[in-house]
Amino acid sequence: MKLSSLIVKAFLCVLVLASVIGSEPVARGDSSVVAGGEEVVYFVPVGVYVDSGDNSLGVYQVEIKVLKGDVKIVGVEGGEHAAFKKPPYYDPAALMKGRIILAKFSTQDDLPTGRTKVATLHMQVTGDVLPEYEVIVNVVGDGDGKAIYAVVTVE
C-alpha cells in the first residue's frame, strides 16, 4: 500500500472517530422497551451513512464496533439509494456480537453522491448505558473503484 494511501486512510479514520465520538450517543428513538427484572432490553436501528461529497459512491467497506454499552447486532438492512438497497455483505458470525464489517459495491451507472444511507443495523441494547460506536473506514471508492475521500457516520 502506498504511504499516501495510508495517510489518507488514517486521516479518514481520525475524522470518522472524531465525528462519532464527538456526537451524542445514539438515541433510543421509538424502539420498544421490554422490562425484564431489573434490566431493560430494547431494540434500536442505527443508520450507516457515507458522505462521498461530489464523488459518486460505488463501493465501501467499513467496520463498526460497539465502544460502550451492552449492545448486540441482531440484524442488517440495506440502504436507501437503489444502488445500495440490498443488504451489504457481512459475516453472520458478527450477529449477537458487538463488531461487524459491512461491505457493498454497485456496478450500475446511477450512483449516489453526497450523504447516503448505505445500511441500517438493528441493535439489541441491554441496560441503561447509552451505546457509543466506533467506525473504521476500510475502503470507500467511486464508480471505478478509485479510492475517494469520504466521511462515514452512524446515527
Binding site: 463501493v59 455483505y89 457493498k104 471508492g141
Partner: peptide, 12 residues
C-alpha cells in the same frame, strides 16, 4: 489484501 474492491474488480 482481500477487501470489497477485489469483489468489485471481479464483478466488473
Amino acid at each position: 489484501r482481500v477487501d470489497i474492491l477485489d469483489a468489485f474488480v471481479l464483478a466488473r
